[in-house]
């Protein structure tokens, strides 16, 4: 390691280092003061924002009829700004891809033979799946939707993993990859198909918008649930003993 010239540390105090001494305490104090000043400035800016400010709530409401759903948040997520959501499902697929590239899932959690946990899993998992299904359906007209449903599904997955129900080798190959890809995949296919059907990318014809959104959300719910549970496992799956 080449030493840096002495001036470097003064001109550019590298924030990522820590030397336990007075200099560090002074640095923290100055940093805290600086950030407090910046926070106060931001506070001033926030209080200077105009109010009331309707934002985009008016156009959202005006086109709600054509969006296929009556919950405005779902309309924004799955229709008006569906393209954001498509890319975001890409980010969500990227996460297990990156985590898997780093190593195999550490099966350090011994399959717990705790009868209470086992019972709980048997009892809760079907309930969670039911709740996920309801949230997915409700998203069209009330708070809910694919992300909420997917998170609940993931909770069921995490509970299963904790109680030792690891997926077998039959699932951890292509079926698992298909599950992870289903959400963005269906979305992508819908986007392309609509383009060749005469519209623009992700332009849903109003009569089919509701059905299309439900289809996309159903696939997304499944993918989100499996993705989050796979991320909890912490690495790529390995074939091994399973129940």
């Amino acid at each position: 390691m080449a030493r840096e010239p002495g001036g470097e540390k003064i001109v550019n105090p590298n924030p990522m280092m820590s030397n336990g001494n007075n200099c560090q305490r002074l640095f923290r104090l100055l940093l805290g003061l600086l950030l407090a000043v910046l926070a106060a400035g931001l506070g001033y800016v926030l209080s200077s924002l105009p109010s009331p400010a309707p934002g985009l709530s008016k156009p959202v409401a005006e086109h709600l009829e054509a969006s296929g759903v009556s919950n405005p948040v779902t309309a924004v997520l799955l229709n008006y700004r569906a393209y954001d959501t498509l890319l975001e499902l890409g980010v969500l697929l990227l996460a297990p891809l990156g985590v898997w590239s780093l190593g195999v899932a550490a099966r350090h959690r011994e399959p717990l033979v705790d009868p209470v946990l086992d019972m709980l899993a048997r009892l809760l998992v079907p309930m969670l799946i039911l709740v996920a299904g309801y949230l997915l359906w409700a998203g069209a007209h009330a708070p809910g939707g694919a992300f909420q449903a997917g998170s609940v599904l993931a909770a069921a997955g995490v509970l299963l993993l904790l109680s030792g129900w690891w997926p077998g080798p039959a699932f951890s190959g292509l079926p698992l990859r298909v599950s992870l890809t289903a959400g963005p995949g269906v979305f992508l296919v819908a986007g392309v198909a609509l383009m060749f059907a005469g519209g623009r990318m992700l332009e849903y014809p109003p009569p089919f918008a509701g059905a299309l959104i439900l289809l996309i959300e159903a696939a997304a719910t499944w993918s989100i649930g499996i993705t989050l549970a796979a991320l909890f496992a912490g690495g790529r799956p390995v074939a091994g003993p399973h129940r």
Binding site: L56, P59, V60, H63, N79, Y80, R81, A82, Y83, D84, G199, R200, M201, L202, E203, Y204
Partner: peptide
């Protein structure tokens, strides 16, 4: 300028 989803700014992207 290509309006994704056919909405156009500011509602769409």
């Amino acid at each position: 300028r290509y309006a994704v989803g056919g909405w156009g700014a500011p509602l769409g992207i």
